[in-house]
C-alpha cells in the first residue's frame, strides 16, 4: 500500500486513537503512517454488532415468553461464552445451562446469585429483574 492510499475514514477509533500501518513512501521505502479508520473494516464491525444486537433482542423475547432466565440475557448481552462465564463464576457449563432456565434460576441461592451479579457487573436486584 502506498502512503497516499492509506484510508482516513471515520471510525469507532475517533477520539481514542489512530492505527499504525506500514506503507510505502514516495521513495518506495517502508515507513509507518497513521490511519483514522477504514470503511471496509467499520462495516464488518457494524455487521458483527448488528448480529449481537439481534441476539440480545431474541434473548429479551425469550425471557418475556418465560423460556429463559435473566442469566441467559446477561450472558448474551456481555458477549460471553461458557468458558468466560465459567471462569468468572466457578460454575460448570452444565450448571450454567440449568441456571439459564427459569426453573433452575428460581432455585439459586443468594450466594450463587451474587457470583453471577459480580460476573455481569450488576446488582442482585438488577440480575433478578433486568431492565429489558
Amino acid at each position: 500500500m502506498k502512503k497516499k492510499d492509506l484510508p482516513q475514514d471515520d471510525s469507532g477509533l475517533k477520539g481514542f486513537t489512530r492505527e499504525v500501518c506500514y506503507v510505502k513512501n514516495s521513495d518506495g521505502k517502508y515507513e509507518s503512517g497513521l490511519s483514522s479508520g477504514w470503511d471496509v473494516k467499520n462495516e464488518a464491525l457494524e455487521n458483527a454488532w448488528g448480529d449481537i444486537n439481534e441476539q440480545i433482542e431474541e434473548a429479551k423475547q425469550a425471557i418475556a415468553a418465560g423460556e429463559k432466565s435473566p442469566i441467559y440475557y446477561y450472558f448474551i448481552k456481555n458477549l460471553m461464552d461458557f468458558q468466560v462465564l465459567s471462569g468468572y463464576t466457578g460454575f460448570w457449563k452444565f450448571s450454567i445451562k440449568k441456571h439459564m432456565t427459569p426453573k433452575g434460576f428460581a432455585k439459586l441461592s443468594d450466594k450463587k446469585l451474587a457470583k453471577y451479579a459480580n460476573a455481569f457487573n450488576v446488582s442482585i436486584e438488577e440480575l433478578k429483574t433486568p431492565k429489558l
Binding site: L13, A44, N47, D51
Partner: peptide, 15 residues
C-alpha cells in the same frame, strides 16, 4: 455467509 466473511476481515484488520 456474510457474517463469516465479516469475521475474516475483522481478524485481518482489527486493532
Amino acid at each position: 455467509a456474510g457474517l463469516y466473511l465479516g469475521q475474516i476481515v475483522r481478524m485481518q484488520e482489527e486493532i
